Computed example of a mutant assay.
Amino acid sequence: MKEYKLESLIYYTKITFDKEHILKSSSKDIQEKLNLYAQEGWRLVSTDVEDFGMGMYFYLYFERDI
């Protein structure tokens, strides 16, 4: 049997000359989440990203055997 989990992360744009500021900050946070969930036996099975207004929404879908 499988157990599923969704992790949602939201990043907002800010005024900066760095066009990749969301990518840089989100990559570090997402890697930390991946490491944390991997230690607990979760596997990343899918991802999704949506932009809405001033924010970007990252969805990480995990599963593990129970």
Rank of each mutant, 00 (worst) to 15 (best):
Phe52Gln: 14
Ser27Pro: 01
Glu50Gly: 06
Met56Asn: 10
Ile66Gly: 03
Ser26Leu: 08
Thr47His: 12
Tyr4Ala: 06
Ile66Gln: 03
Lys19Cys: 03
Phe17Ala: 06
His21Ile: 12
Ile10Val: 11
Leu34Tyr: 14
Gln31Leu: 12
Glu7His: 14
Tyr59Trp: 02
Tyr57Arg: 07
Lys14Arg: 06
Thr47Phe: 15
Glu50Cys: 02
His21Phe: 05
Val45Gln: 07
Gln39Glu: 15
Ser46Asn: 09
Glu63Asp: 11
Lys28Asn: 08
Tyr4Asn: 01
Lys19Thr: 04
Glu50Asn: 05
Ser27Phe: 10
Glu20Gln: 14
Phe62Trp: 02
Leu34Gln: 11
Ile15Ser: 09
Tyr11Asp: 09
Glu40Ala: 12
Tyr37Glu: 13
Asp29Gly: 00
Tyr4Val: 03
Lys14Glu: 04
Glu3Ser: 06
Gly53Ala: 11
Met56Ala: 08
Val45Cys: 05
Asp65Trp: 15
Leu34Asp: 02
Asp29Met: 03
Ala38Arg: 15
Glu32Gly: 06
Gln31Cys: 04
Tyr37Val: 12
Arg43Pro: 00
Tyr4Trp: 03
Leu36Ser: 09
Lys33Gln: 13
Met54Ile: 05
Met54Lys: 02
Leu9Asn: 02
Thr47Ser: 06
Lys5Phe: 11
Leu23Trp: 15
Val49Asn: 05
Ile15Arg: 12
Gln31Thr: 01
Lys5Pro: 01
Asp18Trp: 15
Glu20Phe: 15
Gly55Thr: 08
Ile15Trp: 08
Thr13Val: 02
Lys33Asn: 05
Glu32Gln: 12
Ile22Ser: 04
Ile22Ala: 04
Met56Lys: 10
Lys2Cys: 02
Glu3Gln: 14
Ile30Leu: 13
Tyr4Asp: 11
Lys24Val: 14
Ile66Ala: 09
Ser26Asp: 00
Thr13Asn: 10
Phe17Thr: 07
Glu20His: 05
Gln39Asp: 15
Glu32Ser: 09
Arg43Leu: 10
Leu34Ser: 00
Leu36Cys: 07
Met56Ser: 08
Glu3Ala: 09
Ile10Ser: 11
Thr47Asn: 10
Asp48Met: 11
Val45Phe: 01
Asp65Pro: 00
Ser26Cys: 07
